[in-house]
Design a protein around this nucleic acid. Structure first.
Lengths: 213, 213
DNA sequence: GCCAACATACCGACTGGTCGGTATCAATAG
DNA sequence: CTATTGATACCGACCAGTCGGTATGTTGGC
């Protein structure tokens, strides 16, 4: 109900969107279970009545937030500059550089909403887990073609791994980097790991013949 | 208080230990915030009075569980067979193999308690975050000497990365692998990522430059 | 007796969720 | 032009149940 089509938000710029934006901030700070509906309402500056007018339950907001996260990040990465490189490997490495660039500000600003949510809800709220899964795997799927093209360009066959698995591995490193960053309360460990990831990709694609910077 | 020395459990095999064991299982399934004290008591088969006799608060149990996790995993990895290799690189790769071997059973069986907890508590419960940080960084610290020895054996200097950062990177990959596994409800993505990690280490230490062995 | 180790009953604050109501706008009829 | 209808957006008091935590036992070893 409520919103027949979950578009980017043409009709009303108000309560529903404010709640989703508040969801991004609050859930990334305190987790899904640690976030209360009242808190969400307070952060969004709306009342509880407005909340349950737009979302039939707290879990429904979790799903909607994950979906909105997919849209949001989808637009962000679609418009990122790394797609402009002619060489597919440069596009892949450019993606890593872009992810590294995004690691700034406070922890709740650069950590991943769906990675945070799925940790707590994978068993208790399958609907949220599915939405988080769709977000992560959908994002990874945008990387796979460039990786595959790079593999083809380097004549790589029978590698023992697939473009899809490497795309997922980049997400694994990023998600893990967020966890270590939270534990250390510092972004530096995340940056180091992204550097290790880039080094891995560089080594992978440096055939015996060719050289790599 | 309560337990002056948190030994492996010689004095009382009862309520406190049962609660910690229940904490492992329940928190890994539902997260820290999603776990209630009543649930913990039910899972441990003790009453609420017993809970608050041994832990002054739910947060105190979180800290104790993280500390106990450090002990538990410390003993597990200390007695693992990968230390027996003569070559330091073999010990490091053996560690990766061992981690891969541990990826079996259901998700709550092989995922990391402290990685799960720190996601939700890094801002709201600093004491838990610190305990989780100590657990992760302490574990990484057990790997660093072998990595450093392997670097020395291969005559690696000015690599642009340190043994410590690579040790932390292994933890990043594992933590991230758990998140993706939860999202996909499958262990295979975690296994693939651990394989990528091993491939990275293998490539790193097979530089064509110098060989000292 | 005494104290640690539990058990039972209970509390107040808070939780997700409900419900009757209001404000606003568009369409339609008279 | 007004009146009516109906749909949507939002308000905020309220509810029943749950939460972490406490107060008061009871038991058993030393």
């Amino acid at each position: 109900m409520s919103n027949p089509k979950a578009d980017t938000a043409p009709t009303n710029p108000s309560a529903r969107d404010k709640l989703l934006a508040a969801g991004f901030a609050v859930i990334r700070s305190k987790g899904y279970s640690g976030t209360t509906v009242d808190e969400l309402c307070a952060a969004a500056g709306v009342t509880k009545g407005a909340f349950f007018h737009h979302f039939k339950s707290k879990e429904a907001l979790g799903v909607a937030a994950a979906d909105y996260w997919s849209e949001f990040t989808g637009a962000l990465f679609a418009s990122a500059p790394y797609h402009d490189h002619a060489d597919p490997l440069d596009r892949v490495l450019g993606y890593i550089d872009f992810r590294r660039l995004l690691l700034s500000g406070e922890l709740p600003d650069y950590t991943c909403l769906v990675g945070t949510m799925v940790q707590e809800t994978y068993l208790t709220a399958p609907a949220i887990r599915d939405a988080c899964h769709a977000s992560i795997s959908g994002h990874a799927r945008t990387l796979a073609p460039d990786i595959q093209a790079a593999m083809d360009a380097h004549g790589m066959r029978d590698t023992g791994w697939t473009a899809e698995s490497l795309a997922l591995h980049t997400q694994v490193v990023l998600q893990g980097a967020f966890i270590l960053a939270k534990a250390e309360d510092s972004v530096s460990v995340a940056i180091d790991s992204v550097d290790h990831l880039k080094r891995y990709l560089t080594l992978l694609f440096s055939q015996p013949e060719e050289k790599v910077s």
